[in-house]
Amino acid sequence: MELDYLKTLPLGGFNFDNCIRNRAMAESGILQAPKTMKTGTTICGVLFKDGVVLAADTRATGGSIVGDKNCEKIHNLAPNIFCCGAGTAADCDHVTEMIKRQLELHRLNTHSENRVQMAALKLVAHAFKYGGQIGTHLIVGGVDVKGPQLIECSNDGNMYSMPYHTTGSGSLAAMAIMETRYKENMTREEAVNLCIAAIEAGIYHDLGSGSNVDVCVITRNKYEMLRNIKHDNFKVFSKPGGYQFKKDRVQVVEEFKHKLVVEAGEQPMDLS
């Protein structure tokens, strides 16, 4: 049949087609593998009286270049579970996205709330399967039937639960704040302020972390995403009114115009 090729379509999962080629190119010195984005991060999580606070900085770096000054490192996994990601940016984005889909399916199948333990286990199982090659260092936090929980998941498949966690390149600075100022049964206010202080320690003392502070507060049946709760590092330099350019600097030598059909009618379902 003519559509037989459909059977040969990839069914998902990783594709290793380019591996041998890329290694050959690297060995012969033709081309070095391009740098990938790292989050170069400070992330932390704290348990408080009736919930969990997660916090992260917002800098993404590629080598010494700040690629994204305001990226999102707190990922949503389920309505009651969030997760902070450090390590390779692409891994954190896609792995959390994948687990999010799995949890949603589980939720729909079982008509019940996801448990934090399960989300963390799924993340760890995935990481362990690839022997630490997938650069995800995550802090999973959420509130489920067992109460508020905070779990750290390493890329090597290790996971552990503690009342406060810090990860990423700025984790030492953040941990210093945590160790001195954490106490049990904090109020929401106290917990948020502690997290902000910890992340700011990372922002100001670690070169890989920077920009703003994102905070996510999860309590029973409710979450609050406080994006850029601290934004002391917003861009301050810009010329009012912008720049004017010399007219003859840009010389257009050719021009093509292409009329586009303006689409009308309603759009079917949005799957994004």
């Binding site: 594709n15 087609d17 380019n18 591996c19 080629r21 391009p34 891994d91």
Partner: peptide, 9 residues
């Protein structure tokens, strides 16, 4: 991302 371990450059 599908080509995570053998990326297109």
């Amino acid at each position: 991302y599908e080509h995570r371990f053998g990326p297109y450059f």
